[in-house]
Design a protein around this nucleic acid. Structure first.
Length: 694
RNA sequence: GGGCGAGUGGUGAAAUGGUAGACACGCUAGCCUUAGGAGCUAGUGGGGGAAACCCCGUGGAGGUUCAAGUCCUCUCUCGCCCACCA
């Protein structure tokens, strides 16, 4: 419906994107914080975690750097559980749901406090293996951990400072240890007290510990592969507290031959010795909690969503900074905050948006006090406008609300949402988050935006890599159409290529087949239309029945396959049907009313796949109105069943013969026919039939 | 290292546990045509055979079953996603 079209870059649209942002802001879910964010030096902007793939910006492939910047963030982590649980109520393919669950990375464990010896400070660590607490041999802080400077002893200061500086200059990719690269760290000189057994353990810093996950600190022991590697390298004494039940294996574990990371039986763990580790885990957390040194904690791999961009192109974040009143929302009646006209929209390298240079735009007044204030100059990411666009289709031109409630109620959730797999942890996740928030605010009627989701497969180039403009391996559809194939043949070729959700290479010759098929349909109808001027006198009932049967069998297959996205097999069924019609027309002359009616059914089936040719043929066959608004035909169950069925006979599991039998033949008669079949009989002579399966 | 998925002809692919390779591409031969990069007909998994027909065959090894591409166990390979996430 073209009356409902709009652009997300149009101020009449992004006015509401800004308004929705302010709802997040007012609910405390959009906040400003100074964080080490991913920075793309080429695009000169900050990025969300989701936009960094293998240490590179997913758009341009540039190696991402870390920068400490004051940024707008969305508290998507608050919705982590909802984003997981909501998947149970929608129809998504499991690989999409699994990927989102995996991305959110829910991890249940505990936070445990270690007191720093000779200090009053505590360091909190996160662990999923509280049962191994008695084996804690050392502690490691991320280089960015706020306590590093405070606890480092004088003799170690120089080494620690050097290490911190070195880690900060590394990109994420460089910090990631590859297989041959060893973990590095440096001792702070300080010690922590293990709350379980009061042992002193050394505190190290190491860049394999991530500042952004958990508490940025861990305790290390022999029951973790990374920790094992670290303690081996730096010769830190360690103790085994979990043993496998297998005695031989347990001996090797005791000898510290390798890190034992699975569940087992606790030893050397105070009152918990002798218990199964998975049972002891919760008890130890409870025990430490009583002492005030631990609490249950769930962590997520998901990070809060960095929402600021330092681009000109983006919706301005509708915020005013007032020296007196701080961060103030732009009042609704002053929306939209439009992008100013500029000479130069190139990004700067300062971490500031190019908007910051436009003083007469930046300088404004505070909506609260009317005193001079400055506009926020960061803009929103491309994901902002796309996070709610589907709602705007319900009420595309409303200038009072983002969409009227009665229209939202009427349309409800999106029934079927098609899109690429690459959106799974970007747009699809983001828009579910927005929608869940809007639902909580009472602004939309459904808890989830999309009832069902399907991901289409990617068509690869002939070289088996993804078609992309930058690689220049793209087959341009326009060229095929200009080469005389037509849009219908192209649509069919794409749909026929492979199952809808499958990634598959483009076969440049496939379109020959679909064009040939359409030509055959076309010719058949032309013959019919011409012959109908002098209809044949004789009609043969058996052939007419065979004709209807061929059509209805295809109709059944197409009807079922359409619902299941089985487009390739639906098209195959129509091809099969047309092949059969070509055989039939030799015994049943074209031109009859029966032919006309059945060909109309064929054209109706074809219409969703080849809309243009179907419309033309529909009119040639005398169809009323447009084929595309005609009622989808129902297949006749009586016609899809054959009168004869092929019976296949196996003897001792081997295929020995086949014959045709009437569909309504009795079991006894079919068994008799099978035994008497001239190919089957020789395999039975001189043998006793033990069992017959019909 | 973790998660998910997939391995079937020369190619893309079909196949509620019941005739493996539907449908198509490509190829071969023939027909038709002034011509074919059009159309039509026939053939096209491998091996054997004059033929009827027989044997083998869905990455590999086992298993369940009257019957396995399909179910189970182990294993190899490839693809996608995530990844020092404690």
């Amino acid at each position: 419906d073209w009356d409902r079209s709009f652009r997300t870059s149009d101020p009449r649209y992004y006015r509401w994107t800004q308004w929705l942002f302010l709802q997040f802001f007012k609910a405390g879910l959009a906040y400003r914080d100074e964080v080490a964010i991913n920075w793309c030096p080429k695009c000169k902007t900050g990025l969300a975690n989701e936009e960094v793939v293998n240490g590179r910006h997913e758009r341009c492939g540039t190696l991402v750097e870390k920068r400490l910047l004051k940024q707008w963030l969305f508290k998507i982590t608050k919705y982590a559980d909802r984003l997981i649980d909501g998947l149970a109520d929608v129809d998504y393919p499991s690989r999409i749901a699994d990927q989102q669950i995996n991305w959110i990375g829910r991890s249940v464990g505990a936070e445990i406090d270690f007191v720093v010896a000779e200090h009053s400070t505590k360091i909190t660590v996160f662990t999923t293996r509280a049962d191994t607490i008695f084996s804690a041999a050392f502690m490691v802080l991320a280089p960015e951990h706020p306590l590093v400077a405070k606890i480092t002893t004088k003799p170690q200061r120089a080494a620690v400072d050097a290490y911190v500086e070195q880690s900060q200059s590394k990109t994420d990719l460089e910090r990631q240890a590859e297989d041959d690269k060893e973990k590095t760290g440096v001792f702070t000189g300080a010690y922590a007290i293990n709350p379980a057994n009061d042992e002193r353990i050394p505190i190290w810093i190491g860049d394999f510990v991530l500042a952004g996950y958990g508490t940025g600190a861990i305790f290390g022991d022999i029951h973790d592969e990374r920790d094992f590697e670290f303690l081996t390298r730096y010769d830190i004494p360690a103790r085994v507290t979990v043993l496998p039940e297998n005695e031989q294996e347990a001996a090797k574990v005791k000898a510290k031959e390798y890190p034992y990371t699975r569940e087992g039986v606790l030893i050397d763990s105070g009152e918990f010795s002798g218990q199964r580790s998975e049972v002891a885990r919760d008890k130890i957390i409870a025990w430490l909690s009583q002492k005030g040194a631990a609490r249950e904690k769930v962590n997520y791999r998901l990070r809060d969503w960095v929402f600021s961009r330092q681009h000109y192109w983006g919706e301005p974040i509708p915020i005013i900074h007032c020296p007196e009143h701080g961060v103030v929302a732009v009042p609704d009646d002053q929306l939209p905050v439009e992008l100013p006209e500029v000479e130069n929209y190139e990004p700067t390298d300062t971490g500031e948006s190019p908007l910051a240079a436009i003083t007469d735009w930046v300088n404004t007044t505070c909506p609260v006090c009317g005193e001079p204030a400055k506009r926020e100059t960061d803009t929103m990411p491309n994901w902002a406008g796309s996070s709610w666009y589907y709602l705007r289709y319900y009420d595309a031109h409303n200038d009072k609300e983002f969409a009227a409630r009665n229209k939202l109620d009427y349309w409800g959730a999106v029934d079927m949402y098609l899109g690429g797999m690459e959106h799974t942890t970007l747009h699809l996740l983001y828009s579910r988050f927005w929608h869940q928030f809007l639902y909580d605010q009472g602004l939309v009627p459904t808890p989830e935006p999309y009832q069902a989701r399907r991901g289409q497969g990617i068509i690869l180039a002939a070289d088996n890599t993804k078609m992309s403009k930058s690689k220049g391996n793209v087959t341009n559809p326009t060229e095929l159409i200009e080469a005389g194939y037509g849009a219908d043949a192209l649509r069919l070729a794409i749909a026929f290529l492979a199952p809808y959700d499958q990634t598959t290479p483009w076969n440049p010759n496939g379109i020959n087949g679909t064009k040939r098929f359409l030509n055959r349909v076309w010719s058949l109808v032309q013959e019919q239309v011409a012959a109908a001027k002098n209809p044949p006198a004789i009609a043969e009932q058996d052939s007419e029945l065979a004709l209807a049967s061929a059509i209805h069998k295809a109709l059944k297959k197409v009807s079922v396959d359409l619902e299941e996205f089985g487009f390739n097999t639906a098209i195959a069924a129509m091809m099969e049907c047309v092949n059969e019609l070509y055989l039939l027309k030799t015994t049943l002359p074209l031109g009859s009313k029966v032919w006309g009616e059945n060909l109309q059914l064929l054209v109706q089936m074809l219409a969703p796949f080849a809309p243009h040719i179907a419309e033309e043929l529909w009119q040639q066959l005398g169809g009323e109105g447009s084929v595309h608004v005609s009622t989808w035909p129902e297949f006749d169950p009586k016609l899809v069943h054959d009168k004869l069925v092929t019976i296949v006979v196996q003897v001792n599991g081997k295929l020995r013969g086949q014959f045709e039998a009437a569909t309504d033949a009795t079991e006894a008669s079919v068994v008799k026919m099978a035994q008497e079949d001239k190919k089957v009989a020789p395999h039975l002579t001189g043998k006793k039939i033990v069992k017959t399966i019909y």
